[in-house]
């Protein structure tokens, strides 16, 4: 123990919380694997249009229908003769962009609401949390279905629907995090210095509540990808003929017998992407809050 203390005190360089987190995260093999997969998926979704041109590769190349996986078509072709491999690659950008915007929407709304609720307390907190109870009472897939069926099918509405469903999670997480730090000395000190409430929330409280929010964001990204694909599967997502993974699964449903590859590959892509986000989420949780790691 004393050796350790000496060793750390002798070191002049002190790691910041960010560096410390990154150090712990980089030691977590599954989180690193997850991160690598996410990077590959991002590269695919960005690079797909550089290496492949959807119009010339898929639309113009429409050839034999329902070709089983072969050298030329690694994942086979679908009922219209489109190459499934290229479509799966293109699908990555829909899944990633929808979940990214959706989570962003819920962050932008949920975090300030939770922070205000936790910081102000009283009537305001009650109002926000009761509204949260209402959102929580509706199972999230129901809310999403209601929103899309009311607003109509489009990519933007899908993002809104998936985003609205996660608002209550972020409000809850932020509120409980704020409650644990709002009575700390540095908040009192800031108030004594005459800082406004808004300044205290954004400059002093929220930065100290980031850990659970970041962890939740990662998990929610994975969840949002599933939600978006689910809605597309139900025919409530991105309008056809976009190569969205959920919609591809839905189309493959009619060809289960004999053409199972049509449903297998888009689903695998979905599964791998979601697992990657969950692995990074687990790793981040352990890295940011070692107390939680049993």
């Amino acid at each position: 123990m004393s050796k350790n203390m000496k060793a750390t005190s002798a070191k002049p360089k002190k790691r910041s919380q960010f560096q410390e987190t990154m150090r712990r995260l980089s030691k977590n093999r599954s989180a690193m694997l997850g991160l690598a997969i996410i990077l590959v998926v991002i590269l695919i979704s960005v690079g797909a249009s550089i290496f492949y041109d959807y119009d010339t590769q898929v639309i113009a190349q429409v050839g034999d229908r329902l070709v089983k996986p072969c050298w030329q078509h690694p994942f086979g072709t679908d009922e219209l003769g489109r190459d499934i491999f290229t479509r799966v690659l293109y699908g990555a950008r829909y899944s990633l962009s929808v979940s990214f915007v959706a989570v962003l929407v819920s962050l932008i709304i949920g975090v300030p609401l939770g922070a205000i609720a936790g910081f102000c307390g009283g009537v305001i907190e009650n109002l926000i949390m009761r509204f949260n109870d209402i959102l929580l009472a509706l199972p999230s897939i129901f809310t999403a279905i209601a929103i899309v069926s009311a607003l109509g099918k489009s990519t933007l509405n899908l993002m809104i629907a998936v985003g609205v469903c996660s608002i209550c999670t972020f409000t809850q997480v932020t509120r409980s995090a704020v409650l644990t730090v709002r009575n700390n000395e540095y908040v009192e000190a800031a108030r004594a210095l005459g800082a406004t409430n808004l300044h205290i929330i954004f400059q002093h409280i929220l930065p100290n509540c980031l850990a659970p929010i970041i962890v939740q964001t990662t998990f929610r990204m994975g969840q949002a990808i599933i939600s978006a694909a689910s809605l597309s599967f139900l025919g409530l997502g991105i309008p056809l003929p976009a190569p969205e993974w959920g919609a591809m699964l839905s189309a493959g449903r009619n060809y289960l017998l004999g053409y199972s590859y049509m449903t297998m590959f888009p689903g695998l892509a979905l599964l791998i992407t979601v697992i990657a986000f969950n692995m990074v989420g687990d790793g981040l949780r352990d890295a940011l809050d070692p107390k939680l790691k049993h």
Partner: peptide, 11 residues
């Protein structure tokens, strides 16, 4: 936790 249950159902 990660498997989309509609896909699992299809498989």
């Amino acid at each position: 936790l990660s498997i989309p249950n509609f896909w699992l159902g299809l498989m």
